[in-house]
């Protein structure tokens, strides 16, 4: 038992113990998280599920270093995040985490390439030349190298989300966190996005997505369900759906139609 815990500690990218988050809303105390213990290991592909109010977004904010827990411990890649200040959290987000959002959150009137470069802008160690090269590589890995100079409003929803994934990838993060990444997309585009996540995961990248759609969770390897600030279920998925195979069956629609 002792040994197993030790083993979990060493290759866990995300490790939380008794994570509690309490908000004060006037006189009311809202218990968003009531003690979460979870280890997410390298190369995991995890879906966090639950209804709204279950605490999954709060959990996502904390493991994404956007927020700090009220109590409990959170280790990201071996670093204790719990007591970090704003600047230290920003540094962690820049170096260790890639975000993908439901509403894409790309900078408007800014080209796809420059959107992807954005995280590198806040890393002084990277030269302008490397920046461009890394951003082009990231765009290529989501199949958008031909659209690098398009503006977000010239891209379809699926393409915008792929730019966002490229942006999340560009700084070689230890984990990609995606908050309802398919929430604004149609079925085929959703499968395309999940296909990208599955391919990235195959390359060894840890991916955590938050979703309330069981269909989407079925593409991952592990489903964790939240309810009332606690983990209800934590199940390994025996036979994940393979997005790449399903795409062949869904009738292909030309990109123009999806816009």
């Amino acid at each position: 038992m002792e040994q197993e815990e030790e083993g979990n500690m060493t290759d866990a990218i995300i490790s939380t113990q008794h994570l509690v988050k309490t908000y004060k809303m006037g006189d009311m105390e809202v218990h968003a998280l009531r003690g979460i213990d979870i280890d997410i290991r390298k190369s995991d592909f995890v879906a966090i599920m639950g209804k709204s109010g279950s605490g999954k977004s709060t959990f996502m904010n904390i493991i994404g270093c956007l927020d700090v827990p009220t109590r409990g411990e959170y280790l990201l890649d071996g670093l204790d995040v719990g007591k970090m200040n704003r600047d230290e959290l920003a540094h962690l987000r820049n170096r260790k985490i890639g975000f993908v959002f439901q509403s894409f959150n790309l900078l408007s009137r800014t080209s796809a390439l420059e959107n992807v470069e954005l995280p590198l802008m806040y890393n002084n160690k990277i030269s302008s030349h490397d920046m461009r090269e890394k951003a082009m590589n990231a765009l290529e890995s989501v199949g958008l190298s031909g659209r690098s100079h398009h503006l977000p409003n010239q891209l379809s929803g699926g393409e915008q989300q792929r730019v966002a994934i490229a942006r999340a990838l560009v700084n070689d993060p230890v984990v990609i966190l995606a908050d309802e990444p398919t929430g604004n997309l149609d079925t085929r585009t959703s499968v395309e996005v999940m296909d990208i996540f599955q391919k990235l995961n195959k390359k060894g990248i840890t991916v955590v997505i938050v979703t309330h759609e069981p269909d989407i969770a079925a593409y991952t390897n592990r489903n964790v369900s939240f309810r009332d600030g606690r983990i209800l279920k934590d199940l390994q998925v025996e036979h994940p759906r393979i997005a790449g195979e399903e795409l062949l069956l869904i009738p292909a629609i030309s990109e123009e139609d999806t816009i």
Partner: peptide, 10 residues
Amino acid sequence: GIRMGVGARG
């Protein structure tokens, strides 16, 4: 928010 999300400090 986006800038801070990708690592911009205050």
